[in-house]
């Protein structure tokens, strides 16, 4: 058995069975991570290059740890301080790294579709660690995995995605992933940050964050991505926090406990107040913990295909 894909470019290409295979494999890796020796020798014969053209803390450390826990060798590359600044193209850069006998590439890039483009030109398996405003598949997998851990089967569960939907690759991957698992998805945020025709994806939308909170069982709160907004889409951060930010009082006003998630990094006091982010309902650090197990599963499952084909 293995995944139906050679690369993990987006959740869009995955079958429901693929997602479930990744989850059941990640369950096992999560158990490995709780042992005194948190390491297995499976991928001693595999080398992974982590190629990051954009900044990252969690994703990068998480991938690197996942590789180490699988006994794979890893090399790290970041665009800053590399020959990219001398004008080397993406394919040249990656082919040069691959010619040093690298079996797999984990890539983050600010251009949507960059890993898809690369997958047509190289043989190694590629894991997309975020491409522009398109997808961030491992984040969606670890989000759904964390929800599943708390709620069980996600079929019929109500999940709200709140914040900057327009610029968020996490939102798009989450929508695909949750829908494939049978959950109902609602997106919420200011009108300027909700893409037009989002209902074509089969999700509902609202501009009222309180309504979304009252409806959902899980609120996945997203960061306002100022770095991707080249024109003003709301008047000020203070106004955003007032009308669309989530705080503990709002959570307390709902009669039941909903789960609060955030892919990080949090703009504390903007989309999420500190008392809400650090409340008992928040599973933000569980998400980070699960990230390593999910990435171990993705790397492990894709490593087979990469070497055989």
């Amino acid at each position: 058995m293995s995944l139906s894909v050679k690369h993990l470019l987006g959740i869009k290409d995955l079958a429901k069975e693929d997602i479930q295979t990744i989850f059941s494999t990640a369950d096992n890796f999560k158990q490995v991570l709780q042992r005194p020796i948190k390491k297995v020798p499976s991928l001693r014969d595999t080398t992974v290059a982590n190629i990051f053209f954009e900044n990252s803390t969690r994703t990068r450390i998480s991938f690197e740890l996942a590789e180490k826990r699988l006994s794979a060798d890893s090399v790290n590359f970041s665009a800053a301080g590399s020959s990219v600044s001398k004008g080397e193209t993406l394919i040249d850069t990656v082919n040069n790294i691959l010619s040093m006998k690298v079996d797999m590439v984990v890539m983050r890039h600010s251009a949507s579709g960059a890993p898809h483009f690369l997958s047509q030109h190289i043989d190694a398996s590629i894991i997309n660690a975020g491409d522009g405003t398109n997808e961030h598949p491992t984040q969606a997998l670890l989000d759904a995995f964390s929800m599943r851990e708390k709620l069980g089967d996600l079929k019929g569960k109500k999940i709200a995605i709140i914040g900057d939907i327009l610029h968020s690759r996490v939102a798009l991957s989450n929508i695909y992933c949750l829908q494939k698992l049978g959950a109902e998805v609602l997106v919420a945020g200011p009108p300027t940050l909700i893409p037009k025709h989002i209902e074509a994806l089969g999700v509902a939308y609202t501009y009222d964050v309180k309504k979304a909170l009252a409806w959902c069982e899980v609120a996945n709160v997203l960061r306002i991505q100022l770095e991707r907004q080249n024109k003003p889409l709301f008047s000020s951060l203070r106004e955003y926090a007032l009308y669309y930010g989530i705080n503990k009082d709002m959570l307390d006003s709902i009669q039941r406990d909903i789960l609060i998630m955030h892919p990080g990094p949090i703009n504390r006091g903007v989309e999420l107040s500190s008392d809400a982010a650090d409340s008992k309902q928040s599973i933000i650090l569980n998400q980070v913990e699960n990230g390593v197990a999910i990435r171990m599963a993705a790397i492990y499952l894709l490593s087979g295909k990469a070497i055989i084909e």
Partner: peptide, 22 residues
């Protein structure tokens, strides 16, 4: 005990082994 991650044929068959619970 599941031995999947310790096998010496991780990359020798056409597909990768799916682990069971330890």
């Amino acid at each position: 005990l599941d031995t999947t991650f310790y096998r010496d044929d991780v990359h020798q068959n056409n597909s990768i082994h799916i682990p069971s619970a330890t």
